[in-house]
Amino acid sequence: MTDKQIVTKEKSASVYRFTPEVDIYETDEGLVVMADMPGIDEKDLQIEIANGILTLEGGFEAGEGGQIEYYRQFKLSDRIAAETGEAELKDGVLTLRLPKSEEEKPIRIAVKTLH
């Protein structure tokens, strides 16, 4: 084994992959996904929705050559209007709000009282 091979091997050994713990709940308006990704900065986080698949991905240098990576995927129903989603990152917790498409939202019909 050459020196170069040894170096790459050591590098890959210090990558720690985590599956972020999530809370997912549904409201009348849509789906809310909260994911714990401690240590992550806005610039290290990628949220992608492609072909109905939501990917949460992020990674950062954790000092001493260590790399922390987060990764988790969900398949979304096409009743989610993902393009209008909103994301917020606070204290290592990502909150992603994915609205339902208009026709999925419950319609409330007001009842008139007739006298």
Partner: peptide, 20 residues
């Protein structure tokens, strides 16, 4: 609300399954 169960599905993850 039955449809709620189908709003999303988790993608297969070998990594997580190994963890579990």
């Amino acid at each position: 609300m039955m449809f709620g169960l189908q709003m999303f599905n988790e993608m297969e993850s070998l990594n997580r399954e190994m963890d579990q």
